[in-house]
Design a protein around this nucleic acid. Structure first.
Length: 426
RNA sequence: GGAGAGAUGGCCGAGUUGGCUGAAGGCGCUCGCCUGCUAAGCGAGUAGACGGCUUAAAACUGUCUCGAGGGUUCGAAUCCCUCUCUCUCCGCCA
């Protein structure tokens, strides 16, 4: 959520920034309603002031045994008017709230301006894509061939866009989860959290999924509960409605969770394999920081995500998203794209964003910079550290051998009972 | 799912015959004094939101907030209704 006072003070500037995100005329209605709100608020408060002072006067008169009937009648009339003004205010404020909740974050000045992903900027590459002496397969062939991924039975259980992991496939998924958590907690200083996988709508509004993207989520029937689309939601909302101490910041949080996405608009993209599923696993990184440090922390967080890919020996590149490709809540986003031989291309495996105070304002996450100082909104960051399923897909494709087996990356072997190679079960 | 108790400031905790109580007291924290250091002691300060004023901030000022929403009243932390959550007991369950 943007700061209403910022919009009021610099409407042209904000409008200009929103145009970078391909929006226009977003603020007109807000400005109109905002002005009306303040007009009515002023009149309502004047009347309330009268009511307060007059009511005290009534008390005094009664104590002195004098008649207060006349004054009481005046206050009663004022009360009627106040009620009318308050009703109007409530209506206007509901509208203003709805508008503000629907406006995306403003891009940071360092973000390239563009309509879509074609304006994204490649920042750096790590690792050399392997040269194969045979035609590498895609993971949706490798997995079923080894009988470690089963799409047909997943469809029987749950339909399209689900997968069943079996044997070493299941073990590999679990190994990657544990490996990532161990690296982030042991080497990068994150606290491990195991949150609920279902949260209420306040959380979803807090991080920006609601009200605009309700159709992307799975809602629990008959309840105001949603399956989390990412651990970013419970991790960031952990501190919703709280005032934090500056000395406790920055907070580094990590969690493994499954993620559930309805993604109504994604039909036809990545229909094969485990790249785009309704349920996938992810280790997420979240930071809650001050305004002063959030951009340094974004670089570090991105580096933390990169580190696990490096340890697995998976080639990747870092891409700075353009204004047209960024998510709703982000001010700046780096995507990590891992090399996928089956695609002959890089595929997104992590998205690291600084949301500045956009989520903090929605979720009311604040901190006190110094013991007596005024509270401020915190800055929130999140990044995949990284997606588990896509990691497994990348391992299958990058480490495949000509005989159909898959070499286990060395870093994962301790998590795989020492296994060096996944071969078909005898 | 059934029965009961509760929800007050950063934390604990008074306040329910409605009226100078945005809220006693304590803890914590900040500043100052005192002290050879530390501790103890003394003094002062210490909620947030939304408006007005201001170039802006501070100061000043108004309104709102004692779980949430609604009601009664000239006036509600205090009375009434609904909801949410927490705790205890019972039931069920991994």
């Amino acid at each position: 959520m943007l700061d209403a006072r910022l919009i009021r003070a610099n409407p042209e500037k904000v409008e200009q920034e929103l145009q970078k995100r391909n929006l226009s005329g977003t603020l007109d209605r807000f400005l109109l309603l905002d002005e009306e709100r303040r007009r009515i608020l002023g009149r309502a408060e004047e009347l309330k002031n009268f009511r307060n002072t007059a009511s005290q006067e009534v008390g005094k008169l009664k104590k002195e045994g004098k008649s207060a009937d006349e004054l009481m009648e005046k206050v009663r009339q004022a009360g009627q008017e106040i009620k009318e003004f308050d009703d109007q205010l409530k209506e206007i404020e509901t509208k203003i709230e709805a508008i503000l909740l629907g406006i995306p974050n403003l891009p940071h000045e360092s973000v390239p301006v563009g309509k879509d992903e074609s304006s994204n900027l490649e920042v750096r590459r790590w690792g050399e894509p392997r040269q194969f002496e045979f035609e590498p397969l895609a993971h949706w062939d490798i997995g079923p061939n080894l009988d470690i991924l089963d799409f047909e039975r997943a469809a029987k259980l749950s339909g399209a866009r689900f997968v069943v992991y079996k044997d070493w496939g299941a073990r590999l998924e679990r190994a990657v989860i544990n490996f990532y958590l161990d690296v982030h907690t042991g080497q990068h200083g994150y606290r491990e959290i195991l949150p609920p996988f279902m949260v209420n709508s306040d959380c979803m509004t807090g991080t920006g999924q609601l009200p605009k993207f309700a159709e992307d989520m799975f809602k629990v029937d008959g309840r105001e509960m949603y399956l989390i689309p990412t651990a970013e939601v419970p991790l960031t909302n952990l501190y919703r409605e709280e005032i934090l101490e500056a000395k406790d910041l920055p907070l580094y949080l990590t969690a493994y969770t499954p993620c559930f996405r309805a993604e109504a608009g994604s039909h036809g993209r990545d229909t094969r394999g485990i790249i785009r599923l309704h349920q996938f696993n992810k280790v997420e990184l979240v930071k809650i920081t001050t305004a002063e440090t959030s951009y340094d922390e974004l670089e570090k967080l991105t580096g933390n995500a990169e580190k696990v890919l490096q340890l697995l020996g998976l080639p990747y590149r870092v891409v700075l998203l353009s204004t047209g490709d960024m998510g709703f809540s982000a001010a700046k986003t780096y995507d990590l794209e891992v090399w996928m031989p089956g695609y002959h291309d890089y595929k997104e495996i992590s998205s690291c964003s600084n949301c500045e105070d956009f989520q903090a304002r929605r979720a009311n996450i604040r901190y006190r910079p110094a013991p007596k100082a005024k509270v401020q909104y915190a800055h929130t960051l999140n990044g995949s550290g990284v997606a588990i399923g896509r990691t497994v897909a990348a391992i299958l494709e990058n480490y495949q051998e000509e005989d159909g087996s898959v070499t286990v990356p060395e870093a994962l072997r301790p998590y795989m009972g020492g296994l060096e190679r996944i071969s078909k079960r005898a």
